[in-house]
């Protein structure tokens, strides 16, 4: 088990290092950050001096090592716009994004589990058809449009829920639905096919033969096993929501990391973009890592394989 964990962690570390290189190289391709920092009519000597103090006269791999070394100590440089360390800004906004992503995950599971289980139990029935239709629609509707429709209906017309900002529970409902909307389709499919497999297994048939009530069989015995595939990919969905949060946070003016990074992109605030995207990637890799490790815990065949 220990060697399995170590191997997976190494894999994750390599991915994060690679991601940091990719982000660094792409942002350096934009040309000289000095152009943004100094006035247009700055003398050449000032440009050269600035370049030297920022280390931009060195080869790119050395620049990357300096960047990585500083990043490891938590120094991503100062935000051009906010005049504070980019890392502090990112850490400041991160909890709101995690809160939103977890709420969205909760919403999607609450919808997908009953839909998936009932679709499998009533295979071919009306609820299965509804579930399928829902899945098809879900994958054809962009999350940001769902968000706009929710605002139109529940904020503008019904005036039930606030359209933007953060505050109590009422503020998180609409953005969580908008963000959790997309994965519902896939999760329903996973639950449905897992349930179909389990319901077909010998021990369920045995239970039926023994006269166990159907509800007990479905929810206690079958669902517990069918939930394993979903539980193990929850980390993947959490990770994908971190990506989706960029748009949803902008729509609902949610004070999270996503909106901060999008604003930083418009302000060409490179340190914040780098720190924000790198942090998102770290979260992404860590949640995928946890998924892998949970597979290993649940299924011994994987860790020995």
């Amino acid at each position: 088990m220990l060697s399995y964990i170590l191997r997976r962690v190494m894999h994750g570390v390599v991915s994060i290092i690679g991601a940091s290189m990719l982000i660094f190289v792409i942002s350096r391709m934009s040309g000289d950050p000095i152009v943004l920092l100094l006035p247009v009519d700055a003398p050449q000597s000032a440009i050269d001096a600035m370049r030297e103090t920022m280390g931009l006269d060195r080869p790119i791999w050395m620049q990357y090592l300096i960047f990585a070394g500083k990043a490891l100590t938590g120094d991503f440089g100062n935000s051009y716009r906010w005049q504070m360390p980019a890392l502090n800004l990112v850490l400041d906004r991160l909890p709101a994004t995690i809160e939103l992503a977890l709420s969205a995950l909760l919403f999607s599971i609450m919808l997908a589990v009953p839909l998936g289980v009932l679709s499998a139990v009533n295979r071919g029935g009306w609820i299965d058809t509804v579930g399928k239709g829902f899945a098809m629609l879900g994958q054809a509707m962009p999350g940001f449009w769902v968000g706009l429709l929710l605002i139109l209906v529940f904020s503008v017309h019904l005036n039930w829920l606030p359209a933007f900002g953060a505050g109590g529970v009422s503020h998180i409902i609409l953005p969580a639905i908008a963000l959790g909307w997309y994965p519902v389709a896939a999760q329903t499919r996973i639950i449905r096919s897992a349930m179909l497999d389990v319901l077909d297994s010998d021990y369920i048939r045995m239970g039926r033969a023994l006269g166990a009530p159907e509800r007990l069989l479905v929810w206690k015995y079958a669902f517990r096993n069918a939930a394993v595939p979903l539980v193990t990919v929850l980390g993947v969905y959490f990770a994908s929501m971190l990506g989706g949060a960029f748009v949803v946070e902008v729509i609902f003016a949610w004070p999270g990391l996503g909106r901060t990074v999008v604003e930083a992109v418009f302000a060409r605030d490179f340190p914040v973009v780098q720190a924000g995207v790198l942090f998102t990637s770290v979260l992404f890799v860590v949640s995928n890592l946890l998924v892998d490790l949970s597979y290993g815990l649940i299924d011994p065949r994987i860790r020995h394989g």
Binding site: L22, I26, G244, V265, Q274, F284
Partner: peptide, 14 residues
């Protein structure tokens, strides 16, 4: 390991 929209944002900065 980089969410696609995040990667798109980095490229869009450039």
């Amino acid at each position: 390991s980089i969410p696609s929209l995040a990667l798109a944002l980095v490229i869009a900065t450039v």
